[in-house]
Amino acid sequence: MKQVALSYFDNIELTNLALILFLIAFFIVVFRVMSKENQKLYKEMERLPLEDEEYEIKEDEK
């Protein structure tokens, strides 16, 4: 089965490259997300959808 699978495929280094890129990217994301400096920012960020208070335009303001 494996021979058949790979008989059409001569770019094994591509998958290795993909795996390495993938892992590096994942660890960068996790590291950044967990790093202390971002915690305050995330607290602000999660409030964003809730902070969009709108004010009515009064007739005399137009």
Partner: peptide, 8 residues
Amino acid sequence: KEKESYVK
């Protein structure tokens, strides 16, 4: 009459 609103 539609409400018009603005944000600051």
